[in-house]
Nucleic acid binder design. Structure first.
Lengths: 107, 107
DNA sequence: TCGATATTCAACCGTTCGGTTGACGATTGG
DNA sequence: CCAATCGTCAACCGAACGGTTGAATATCGA
């Protein structure tokens, strides 16, 4: 059996998937709109979304022919809790976060 | 070029590697001692350690014929910061962490 | 109704991953 | 000196990954 932590961390290991999650911070999106900024096929994006969905990081709801993707940030909690123990990152460095966010959205 | 975040998250995606990190919370360890609790070959452990090392999550220092492995928790900071933005996990749930830790050490 | 739109499926491809085994290069200690 | 210990390397294996293309399935809108 595969741990949820495995699923979450390996979902996060891909930059395309992290970029998708970042986009979904703004708002829910349809699959086609998620795919738009990327240079890869829609089918590839569909697979990425399936992986994010299996990890619980997004939920997908079909309305008509459009499938809406919604960020599920709660799914990050176990992984976040796991990590915190190793580094005692009690205070969040927001400046550092914004720098990383830029680096995520950029390429 | 591969992002540091890629390296850290994919290093964490494997349960054996997470278990190794957890063991190193206690103390620095030699490669052979790291391998001891696992049912896989020493060569496999050596590869896992190389992956953790490339991700910056551990450092290795050879003294004589023994190579010592040391946890480098600072390497988790970028990943931790990245995650926090999605969930606002300002307060750490230590009970939850201990439950996860047990689940990590157990199998 | 019919064409366009939205998404997935299925098959395939090359690469990476986690693992093995056996040989090998150091280093140690009796 | 010499055998044992520590760890890596190299070659291999099967499975999973990230991607493609083309066909298939719904659903929408005019």
């Amino acid at each position: 059996m595969e741990s949820k932590l495995d699923l979450v961390f390996s979902a996060l290991a891909d930059p395309t998937r992290r970029a998708i999650l970042t986009m979904l911070l703004e708002d829910d999106m349809a699959v086609t709109d998620v795919a738009e900024p990327f240079d890869i096929s829609l089918a590839a994006i569909s697979k990425h979304l399936a992986i994010l969905s299996r990890a619980g990081l997004i939920s997908q709801e079909r309305r008509g022919r459009v499938k809406w993707c919604k960020l599920e940030p709660e799914a990050l909690r176990p992984a976040s809790v796991w990590m915190q123990a190793f580094g005692q990152f009690d205070e969040i460095d927001l400046d550092a976060f914004e720098r990383f966010l830029e680096r995520e959205l950029d390429p």
